[in-house]
Simulated assay, not measured.
Amino acid sequence: MLRHGNRRPGLAWPLRSHRPLSAKDLLLGTLPLRADGEPGARIWPAPTRVALIGCESGGDLRFAESFGLATAMLHNGAGLVTATRWVLPTSFAFHRLAQLPESVRPLSEAVIAVDTAHEDEDPVHRLDRWRAEGRIEHSPLLWAAMTSIVV
């Protein structure tokens, strides 16, 4: 709702000078804010394929009545949503804990792999790389967190 003088409509509380866009906004749009409001799917339709690669971006899906970004994307028209089920280790963590050189960027590579998979007809075969090479940057620590929901 309109709060604290912030002129942008939304259901999240303003933070400093802006109001974050929330999953609730994506789902409900402006329906709870005014009589002539529009549903979120009409205001923010989702593309066919959506990747939400961030710490626990798909955490809402573990509950029977989920209400989060992944659910909002499905509700707003996405046919495929890839999200992560747990907190992801950063590339810095791989550098610090596994002594990988800074030129190796496991998290960036995982994000690029998801993007590539969303653009391609064939899935990414990271398990084969892990089994063949056994290298930490190909480990399930990152890619096993990814979940794809297809409607």
Rank of each mutant, 00 (worst) to 15 (best):
M1V: 14
L2D: 03
R3K: 11
G5Y: 02
R7H: 07
R7L: 08
P9I: 00
P9S: 00
P9W: 07
G10D: 03
G10W: 00
L11P: 04
L11Y: 02
L11E: 02
A12G: 08
W13L: 05
L15S: 10
L15G: 05
R16N: 10
R16G: 08
R16F: 09
S17R: 15
H18T: 04
H18Y: 14
H18L: 05
R19T: 03
P20Q: 11
L21V: 13
L21F: 03
L21I: 04
A23E: 06
A23Y: 07
K24A: 14
G29M: 07
G29T: 01
G29K: 10
G29P: 01
L31P: 00
P32T: 08
R34L: 05
D36R: 09
G40R: 10
G40W: 02
A41H: 15
A41M: 12
A41K: 15
R42N: 11
I43N: 01
W44D: 04
P45Y: 04
T48K: 15
R49K: 15
R49A: 14
A51V: 04
L52I: 10
I53P: 05
G54H: 13
C55Y: 09
C55A: 06
E56S: 11
S57H: 09
G58A: 08
G58I: 06
G58M: 02
G59M: 06
G59L: 04
D60H: 03
L61K: 04
F63R: 11
F63S: 14
A70N: 09
A70R: 01
A72Y: 10
A72F: 13
A72R: 01
L74F: 12
L74G: 05
N76E: 05
G77P: 11
G77L: 03
L80E: 15
L80N: 04
V81C: 10
T82E: 02
A83G: 08
T84L: 02
T84F: 02
R85S: 15
R85A: 14
W86L: 05
W86P: 07
V87S: 14
P89K: 13
P89G: 03
P89S: 08
T90M: 01
S91K: 05
F92N: 10
A93H: 11
A93P: 00
A93Q: 13
F94D: 05
H95I: 02
L97R: 14
A98C: 09
Q99F: 07
Q99L: 11
L100R: 13
L100T: 06
E102K: 12
R105Q: 15
R105C: 06
P106Q: 08
L107S: 02
S108W: 03
S108C: 10
S108K: 08
E109S: 11
A110M: 14
I112Q: 14
I112M: 14
V114P: 08
T116R: 08
A117K: 00
H118P: 03
H118A: 12
D120E: 12
E121S: 08
D122C: 06
V124L: 05
V124N: 09
V124F: 05
R126T: 06
R126A: 06
L127G: 07
D128N: 08
D128K: 13
D128F: 03
R129F: 05
R131I: 12
R135P: 03
E137C: 04
E137P: 02
S139A: 15
P140T: 06
L141C: 10
A144G: 10
A144Q: 11
A144H: 11
A145G: 14
A145H: 04
T147L: 14
S148G: 13
S148I: 00
S148F: 00
I149C: 06
V150P: 00
V150E: 12
